[in-house]
Design a protein around this nucleic acid. Structure first.
Lengths: 327, 327
DNA sequence: TCAAAAGTGTTATCCTTACACCCATGT
DNA sequence: ACATGGGTGTAAGGATAACACTTTTGA
């Protein structure tokens, strides 16, 4: 059937990439500034089926050309097609469908990353989703700003607590954590979408949604179009994936100390991890091997350097960093 | 950036649904026959952004209109856009991008399912991916047909065993299981794609790929376009998802026995599950509650009837059937 | 000598897996 | 009575989480 359709409105497929790297133990994301100003967007380009056989080929070519960043791991996230979530100028413009991708790279590695084009830069991803950074404990703005405002929002429609549909209050508690329920760091997208629904992020205003009255301070730095939603999707996927696939090593240099690996895992997961258990877990899982070299750049006792054991790809079906609740 | 593109070839977005139901303890999928003959395809329709605000709304409307099947759970799977995987008649036709969806429904429930249109029918999904059914132990055609042919294929390019890229033999072993390595039931798509690469499925021929010489028997019933690939994606996703989300109850009637629930879990996962552990796992996880009624239709001792406890959605973050290796 | 970070050992607890067994009903 | 499927108890093993402690360097 699929080949007999005739579209009634031109449709454009945009490939959008959340390109993640780690710098100084913090996760960053590659951004462009399409209007030349302060507004941020993800690198994004059109899919041209004539020039490129697959989405991924198109994406790699496009990103490489525009930002100079060499992509390692690339994974499709989700395809967003909602009308009204892309801030179109008019209804006569083509409808844009965004295929979101997660990509991993290294800043300043020998292959030429770090020399990204002048119009692109790496920014801390927690600038855009600050409530996701629990490395230093529960973020203060949760209790000072987010939960009070969500509280107001839940009171607007309190009675929905049927068993089929979750009430607003139940969604808030399940996603942002409360006394009994924990904060699950993988539900990044769900939290962002809830804040969008509640009118607490700038993008909701741009899409023509009513903001919560009184017009309170917006939470986290906004992005153009629906790109912050794609970033949230990428963050959630990466947090889940690193537990069962060794993707984190795409973000590490060739050799690294176990502490550096732990800092990267913490940067991505947004959680503090337990040092001793993390080390034992990593060493016992055979995903790394010592190089024999030592790093003296640590400030204290020199640390042994390790490298990723690529052979685990052949040995084990799901070799990730199985960081549990306490890592 | 995304809104400034100009496409060079018309692009069409097709919404394609793998609609799953369970009949007589076996998983089935809803199929259409676009050419009126024996060839099968998944229900599929164009996305029209004017008529439908979101993909999901468009998909529900379209499937409901064409097949009469009421969809319960709906989830986006993946977006396929490869040139050359959709059997287009010519290069002048619009390029088709398929957004694949997984949907769950019930056959013959009181809401009108089962009365699907005459042009649509439910077929066993293992007819199309027979190597995925391990309920009765290791499928015979693995050793009689698939592995011998893959063996030939691996010998065509044996030397690739670097640490960066897996060799053909390593991929076969990791995906289809061998002496040391187990068969992971979630990697449905990866197995199908490997068989496609090896030229062992009919779709590879239709897409113009060279089939393995001598032209050996094809494995599993083919589908039109790339729809068997979407089915494989759906099967893998459902097998993974049912372990941490209570999606399986979308396939069950309102009340059911624990054995019926186990048969359904086995139907989806394609594995035999351990009875005692399955029961304890289910009962202790509080996802079901006894109705107090008994079923006398079992042949032996009457079985207690249970229902899904929808409250778990409010209580626990990840309430699935945590079936491990032995369930 | 002291701060700072690396690195090791041990134990309690929970979850998974496996095995053995009893119960209630229809024929 | 016996076949058939329903239902329960318990113990071994492994993984996780939490604890306390020692070692090695640079300043």
């Amino acid at each position: 059937m699929t080949s007999h359709h005739s579209a009634t409105l031109p449709i454009e497929v945009g490939l959008t990439a959340a390109i993640v790297a780690v710098r100084d133990d913090s996760p960053t994301i590659l951004l462009t500034h399409p209007d030349g100003g302060a507004n941020s967007a993800l690198p994004s380009g059109p899919f041209d089926p004539v020039a490129h056989r697959t989405f991924e080929i198109g994406l790699r070519a496009w990103v490489s050309e525009q930002t100079g960043a060499p992509l390692g791991y690339v994974e499709q996230l989700y395809t967003f097609g909602d009308r009204g979530r892309h801030a179109q100028a008019s209804d006569r413009e083509p409808h844009v469908v965004s295929v979101g991708y997660l990509a991993l790279t290294r800043i300043g590695d020998e292959h030429g990353a770090g020399q990204v084009a002048a119009s692109a830069d790496f920014r801390l991803w927690y600038d855009f989703l600050p409530w996701e950074d629990w490395r230093g404990g529960r973020p203060a703005l949760l209790d000072s700003v987010i939960l009070p405002q969500l509280e107001t929002w839940t009171r607007e429609a309190p009675g929905w607590g049927s068993t089929r549909v979750l009430s607003r209050a139940e969604r808030v508690r399940l996603l942002f954590g409360g006394k009994e329920s924990a904060f699950n760091e993988e539900n990044v997208l769900e939290r962002y979408e809830l804040l969008y629904e509640a009118g607490l992020v700038e993008e909701a205003r741009q899409d023509g949604r009513e903001l919560q009255a009184p017009a309170v301070e917006q939470i986290g730095e906004p992005m153009l179009y629906d790109h912050r939603r794609i970033l949230a999707t990428a963050m959630g996927r990466l947090r889940a994936k690193m537990k069962y696939r060794p993707v984190i090593f795409e973000l590490m240099p060739e050799t690294f100390t176990l502490t550096a690996l732990q800092r990267t895992a913490e940067a991505i997961s947004g959680r503090h991890l337990h040092k001793q258990n993390f080390r034992r877990l990593v060493e016992s899982s055979a995903v790394v091997e010592p190089t024999g070299e030592m790093s003296h750049a640590t400030g204290g006792r020199p640390a042994a350097l390790f490298r990723f054991r690529r052979e685990v790809l052949q040995e084990r079906p799901a070799p990730g960093l199985r960081v549990g609740l306490r890592g």
